[in-house]
Design a binder for these strands. Sequence first.
DNA 1: TGGGACCATATGGGGGTCAATGGGATTTGG
DNA 2: CCAAATCCCATTGACCCCCATATGGTCCCA
Lengths: 146, 146
Amino acid sequence: MNRFLSHATNRIDAKGRVSVPSSFRGVLAKLDIRELYCFQDFVFPAISAGGPELLDRFERQIADEDPFSPQANEMSLLIHGGGVFMKLDQEGRLMVTDFIRDFTGITNEVTFVGRADHFQLWAPQVFQETQATARQERRLRGLRPG
Amino acid sequence: MNRFLSHATNRIDAKGRVSVPSSFRGVLAKLDIRELYCFQDFVFPAISAGGPELLDRFERQIADEDPFSPQANEMSLLIHGGGVFMKLDQEGRLMVTDFIRDFTGITNEVTFVGRADHFQLWAPQVFQETQATARQERRLRGLRPG
DNA sequence: TGGGACCATATGGGGGTCAATGGGATTTGG
DNA sequence: CCAAATCCCATTGACCCCCATATGGTCCCA
């Protein structure tokens, strides 16, 4: 598989680490991603993680604007100030830093959620509720496929 | 890493010093920056800090305009009158002067914010709020990439 | 078909290394 | 000569390499 799919919840250990699901690590290996660009999502209280080209894409978007404009300044505040590169340890674990905890509300467990070209880190209960809400809204709009 | 990313909050000690995050110091070393050019940001209540070439870039921009124009005059007022050079001590700490405190509202703690080619000093709560607002505006503009 | 060998993943923790912080001692500048 | 800035060292705590254990699943063979 070459994209991130499904979701799984893992425990954070006493040192603040959590295992990234094996299937996600497999995708990372296949895409040759050794360092994760992680940023605070613009819409949900979740951390999004993907390859460095994700940041490149954002920066190209900034470069298309006047570099001194408030909009460019604001965008940089989010993708640079709200983003960071992280690495997995040898066992494929990730440190759950305050950068992640403060923004997501994660405490003891992490729900990993596949999003095709990247994946996200959620507080389990927040993910449950948000997904349920999204499903509900979709049903109300009558856009449910199938 | 060769650019300033992410954010971190450090305490100001009894002598008014604060540690610059290790990752930022690493970038400074890699870019061979020994002296910081610090200036009052044009958009946000934050101090921006980077290498001397930052000032050079601003001055070149002034030089491209009519030197007696109001715009050039105004720009000089900001980058010269609102700027200063600073150095880190041996442990990588920075004196938090009134120049910094008055403009940012910083008192006990400093949030360091990466901005790719420079970094900023914010009052922690002001940063939180400004970033949240930026995220909100981005959402309203419907410009979410990805 | 049931038991057991084998394997992969998740989890736990020891111990070294490095960064953040605190504070005494010394120097510098007005 | 005094106050502030800087140097230097000690302490604490966080992170990371490395190895051990737990847990659950699959495959093979009797």
